[in-house]
Simulated scan of single mutants.
Amino acid sequence: MSDSNNSSFSASAFILIGFPGLEAGHFWLAFLLCSLYLFTVLGNCTIIYIIKAEQSLHEPMYLFLCMLAAIDILISTSTVPKMMDVLWFNSTTIGFDACLLQMFCIHSLSGIESTILLAMAFDRYVAICRPLRHAAILTTPSIAKIGLAAVIRGVILMGPLPIFIKRLPFCGSRVLSHSYCLHQDVMKLACADIKVNIIYGLIVIISAIGVDSLLISLSYIFILRAALSLTQEARLKALGTCISHVCAVFLFYVPFIGLSLVHRFGKIHGSNVHIVMANVHLLVPPVLNPIVYGVKTKQIRQRIMGIFQRFTR
């Protein structure tokens, strides 16, 4: 790491870091990451299996949940294995093209997840505010089209990010401030004008995360207004179907927006706040989403209990 600022590092590679100040505990932190990754894969695969097997869960909300679970697995797979490699084996070098690929996967999958969360909010809006039209609006073909649109949107919006990085020269430090590659982190190492990268990054944040979070907020304003006109029992039942989604929204957007603000406006040198927020953003939601939906969804909870009972007999 001490040679990271000299010319011995190839222009075709970057240097990743672990957790500054906790180098002595990297070996054990890797075990924690490994456990989180295994729980992410197991938990989300279980959610997908149960929804596929349980006929009563073949509804729009849970079909979108399957998409969310698949995205969480892919996001974790694109980041955690390399992080464990850094912590366990001190393999801090990542090739330039590999860094761009990881960057594209992280940002595009995040964009897709944001769109799926918006689709889930739309599902709750239609179910509560337009219940008689719910089945007609959110048919299986329309859900498949929404999922495809989410993928296309994520790829189109985030695709230019690695292209803009590819055109930049890097002649100084190659040391990134995370254990994986983020656009806002890599572009700061360039020894050239990065105004285009900054502007496009802001456009992506506003047009994707900003618009999605605004529309989700509006959908819940309409949901609350519609719920207030119901009886108390019906109101609690309607709002109860939204709790899991609200938790997933907060788990995704709060760390994401916080990390973006820290990178753009905060002074990150000498502070580990950005590292903590980045790891929370990518590692925590994939772990907690299956728990939230498992606890709040009766059918999923019962199937999980049945699986455990079969294994413990």
Results as ranks from 00 to 15, higher is better:
Ser4His: 01
Ser7Met: 05
Phe9Gly: 00
Ile17Asp: 02
Leu22Glu: 05
Ala24Pro: 02
Gly25Thr: 06
Gly25Glu: 09
Gly25His: 06
His26Trp: 01
Phe27His: 08
Leu29Tyr: 06
Phe31Ala: 04
Thr40Asn: 07
Gly43Phe: 02
Cys45Ser: 07
Thr46Leu: 11
Glu54Cys: 09
Ser56Leu: 06
Tyr62Glu: 05
Phe64Leu: 13
Leu65Gln: 03
Cys66Leu: 05
Ala69Trp: 00
Thr77Phe: 14
Pro81Phe: 04
Met84Tyr: 01
Thr93Met: 12
Ala98Cys: 10
Cys99Thr: 07
Leu100His: 03
Leu100Asp: 00
Gln102Glu: 13
Met103His: 03
Phe104Arg: 00
Ile106Lys: 02
Ser108Glu: 01
Ser108Thr: 06
Gly111Tyr: 01
Glu113Ser: 11
Ser114Ile: 01
Leu117Ser: 03
Leu118Ile: 03
Leu118His: 00
Met120Asp: 01
Met120Tyr: 01
Met120Cys: 10
Tyr125Trp: 06
Cys129Phe: 03
Arg130Ile: 02
Ala135Asp: 14
Thr140Phe: 08
Pro141Asn: 03
Pro141Glu: 03
Ala144Arg: 12
Ile146Glu: 01
Ile146Met: 08
Ala149Asp: 01
Ala149Arg: 06
Leu157Phe: 14
Gly159Asp: 06
Gly159Lys: 07
Ile165Gly: 03
Leu168Pro: 07
Phe170Asn: 08
Gly172His: 05
Ser177Trp: 06
His178Tyr: 15
His183Arg: 03
Lys188Trp: 10
Val196Asn: 11
Asn197Val: 12
Ile199Phe: 15
Tyr200Asn: 10
Gly201Phe: 07
Ile206Phe: 15
Ala208His: 04
Ser213His: 05
Leu215Cys: 12
Tyr220Ala: 02
Leu228Ile: 10
Leu228Tyr: 12
Ser229Glu: 13
Leu230Ala: 08
Gln232Cys: 12
Glu233Arg: 14
Arg235Trp: 13
Leu236Trp: 12
Lys237Gly: 13
Leu239Arg: 03
Thr241Met: 08
Cys242Ala: 12
Ser244Cys: 12
Cys247Ser: 04
Gly258Arg: 06
Ser260Trp: 07
Val262Tyr: 04
Phe265Thr: 10
Asn272Cys: 13
Val273Pro: 13
His274Thr: 10
Ile275Pro: 01
Val284Ser: 15
Pro286Thr: 13
Pro286Trp: 13
Pro286Val: 14
Val287Ala: 13
Val287Gln: 11
Leu288Pro: 04
Gly294Lys: 01
Lys298Asn: 09
Ile307Met: 10
Gln309Ile: 11
